[in-house]
């Protein structure tokens, strides 16, 4: 079965979405991530969506769910690299991703994660 790879880097998990995701793939990622957070006791999750040229309500909801479930599993999620056209479209669609922490790029996302984990 097709899967999106989840990489481990110290206390953090890294996910780079590089394919046009169908709904089942999004659901699988959600399940895989919660599983990996629990197995690795990861403190943070970084999701890079810079390669996504569109985010619809289904993918948006998945991002929100991952962020919420990681929070209750004691991990922070940061979503990085959203393309400007995608951001404009998401807001107009009515999806503002409440509670989801975002950063412009991977570098800023990583430092945000480190800060947040250290301050706890």
């Amino acid at each position: 079965m097709e899967r999106i790879p989840i990489l481990r880097m110290g206390d953090f998990l890294l996910v780079t979405i590089q394919v046009d995701m169908h709904d089942e793939l999004a659901m699988t990622l959600q399940d895989d991530l919660s599983d990996r957070i629990s197995k690795t006791s990861a403190r943070g999750v970084l999701i890079d969506i810079s390669a996504l040229d569109m985010v619809d309500s289904f993918i948006g909801r998945m991002i929100g769910t991952i962020s919420g479930l990681s929070r209750i599993m004691d991990a922070q999620t940061v979503v990085v690299g959203m393309q400007p056209a995608v951001a404009i479209t998401l807001v107009e669609l009515g999806l503002t991703l409440p509670g989801v922490i975002t950063a412009l790029n991977v570098e800023r996302g990583m430092s945000l994660l480190r800060e947040r984990v250290q301050s706890e």
Binding site: D23, E24, T89
Partner: peptide, 30 residues
Amino acid sequence: EQDVVLARQTARKLAVEAGLRLVDQTKLVT
């Protein structure tokens, strides 16, 4: 379900062909 991905890929290709600017392409594809 896989056809949803194909439908948006077709929509993107056609939106480019029609000359829509990037933000409008993205809105239509979404």
